[in-house]
Computed example of a mutant assay.
Amino acid sequence: MTIKTMTTASLAALILGSGTAMADTWRYAFEEALDEVQGVFAQKFKEEVEANSDHEVQLFPFGTLGESDNILEQTQSGILQFVNQSPGFTGALIPEAQVFFVPYLLPEDQDQLVSFFRNSETINNIFPELYAEQGLELLTMYPEGEVMLTTQEPVTSPEDLADTKVRVMTNPLLVESYKAFGATPTPLPWGEVYGGLQTGIIDGQENPAFFIESTNMYEVTDHITRLGHNNFTTALMANKDFYDGLPEEDQQVIQNATDAAFEHIIEYQQGLTQESLDKIMEAKPSMTITELTEEQRAPFRETAGEVEKTFLEIGGDRAQEVLDQMKADLEAAANS
């Protein structure tokens, strides 16, 4: 029996063991490897917590406890205290979080993007209420990098995506977004993507450059296209019962560690995209990297209105409020 197939109860027994040795250990799972963006964030969080309290933070990188849906369930049930996960996987649970998959909504300008994530009323006031309804304390959201499309054939227009099976996260709005782009969106667990590209089950996938490089996705695709359509967003959450039950000083330790990790990961990402693309080209000189011109992006950008309408239909009871406030937040970031 693998960890992926374990029941929640048996997994809890495995992690928790017996006795009180783990009483001051906080368990934190994330969707990437230890040396990738979420892992770097997690290590800084761990360092800050352990330097400023008697608690230990135990880290569980991707695959240790299963797929993304597994670690979210484990956090909701209290087996894990913290989980770092993209709204791409929580979108079905918290439909309003799918707003991050409306294409061309987030800015490409890095300073504007960081200002938005620091100061957003949507992130700081609306989303915590929505996450709390699902037993989660939203601690922060942060960007991981420009999303790029990797495919077997070059892409310069929506017509080039006709009949192209693009792997997407199990997120309804992301599915609609790629349909609007002209592709055939194919939800697939991350652990099956490399093999799916090898065997032709899928023809492409999207991720930031660092993840394309670190997971060797360039080995099984030939073209990288920079559509400029999105930036990968992720969120750090805690089990709400756990968090609410902590003394105020421990809650402050967590908030301080979260803030420090946020600033650290923003600095860490400076130059990371270009560095990752350079590594890809060094490993595979035949790879092409195409940044679409504004003229080439225009037909992709035109689909944003259609996807936005879909978001308002499937994005939950507060979809309009979330979209309106997010646009106001983005305008404020642009003028800051």
Rank of each mutant, 00 (worst) to 15 (best):
I15F: 05
N231H: 13
F232S: 12
Y178T: 00
T199C: 02
T186H: 06
I224V: 15
T150G: 11
L227M: 14
D109F: 00
Q81S: 04
F181Q: 10
L14W: 14
A235L: 02
V155C: 01
G191E: 12
P95I: 05
Q110Y: 11
V114K: 13
I3S: 03
L138A: 06
F89Q: 07
Q255H: 07
G191Q: 12
T122A: 06
T164F: 00
L14F: 15
S120R: 05
P103Q: 09
E96A: 07
E306V: 15
T310C: 06
V49P: 01
E331V: 03
W26Y: 13
Q252M: 09
T122M: 10
Q81I: 00
A132N: 10
L312S: 10
A9Y: 11
R167W: 04
K179V: 07
T293R: 07
V307P: 11
L173Q: 04
A29W: 02
T7P: 11
Y243R: 04
Q74W: 09
Q274I: 11
E213H: 04
N171L: 02
T290E: 14
E67R: 00
T293N: 05
D250F: 01
E176G: 09
T156F: 00
A261I: 07
S214I: 05
E50H: 06
S120Y: 03
E137Q: 15
M287Q: 14
L330E: 05
P285H: 06
G315P: 09
